[in-house]
Computed example of a mutant assay.
Amino acid sequence: MGDPTAAMIFAAGFGTRMGALTKDRPKPLIEVAGRPLLDHALKLTRDANLRCVVNAHYKAEMVETHLTGWPDVSLQIERPEILDTGGGLKAALAELGTDPVFTLNSDAVWAGPNPLDCLRDAWRPYEMGALLLLVPIDRMIGYTRTGNFAADAQGRLTRDTSGMVYSGAQLLHTDGLAAIDEASFSLNLLWDQLLPEGQLFGVEYPGFLADVGTPDGIVLAERMLEQYPNV
Rank of each mutant, 00 (worst) to 15 (best):
L89V: 06
E222T: 04
R46P: 00
P36C: 00
R145C: 00
A130V: 09
Y166P: 15
G86S: 02
E204G: 14
K90F: 09
R156Y: 02
P113T: 07
I82E: 08
I82D: 10
D152E: 05
I77P: 05
G213Q: 15
T98E: 13
M164L: 14
E64H: 11
V135W: 01
D39C: 00
S162E: 04
Y126I: 15
S106T: 11
V165H: 00
V109Y: 09
S184R: 15
R159E: 15
N114V: 10
D107V: 09
D175E: 14
A91G: 11
T16Y: 12
G87W: 02
E64Y: 04
G86C: 03
F185K: 06
E78G: 07
Q199G: 13
M8T: 02
D99T: 11
N230L: 11
M140A: 13
A12I: 04
D84F: 07
R17P: 15
L134P: 05
G155Y: 06
P196W: 01
R223D: 09
W110N: 11
A111W: 07
E95Y: 13
L116C: 01
H66M: 03
L172T: 15
W123M: 11
V53A: 02
D211G: 03
I77L: 03
T68E: 13
T103F: 04
Q76C: 12
A11V: 09
F149I: 00
A94I: 13
A111M: 10
V63A: 04
E31R: 13
H66T: 06
Y166F: 09
I77M: 07
P115F: 01
T214N: 06
P115G: 10
L225N: 05
Q154H: 06
E64M: 13
L134I: 08
I218M: 05
G147W: 01
E226G: 05
V219Q: 10
G69S: 11
V212S: 03
L132M: 10
P196R: 07
E182Y: 04
D3M: 14
F185C: 06
A7T: 05
P26V: 09
L89Q: 05
L96F: 10
E222W: 11
R145W: 05
L195I: 15
K43I: 15
R139M: 03
L200G: 01
G168P: 02
L67P: 03
A130I: 09
L187M: 13
V203P: 02
A169S: 15
L29I: 07
F208T: 01
D72L: 08
A130Y: 03
N114I: 07
A48E: 12
E226Y: 03
M164R: 11
L38C: 10
D47C: 05
P28I: 01
L220V: 06
Q199C: 14
G217W: 00
A111E: 08
R139W: 01
L104S: 14
G142H: 02
M224W: 03
I30P: 15
P100F: 00
T16Q: 13
R17W: 12
K23G: 12
G129H: 09
D72F: 04
Q227L: 14
E61N: 10
N148R: 06
E127N: 09
G168L: 01
G19F: 08
E182C: 03
M18D: 06
K90L: 06
R124D: 10
G202V: 02
F201S: 13
G19N: 10
G86P: 02
P36I: 12
R35E: 14
A151H: 11
L190D: 03
L172R: 15
D138W: 01
L119C: 03
A210V: 10
L200I: 07
I9R: 09
A122Y: 02
A151N: 11
D84T: 08
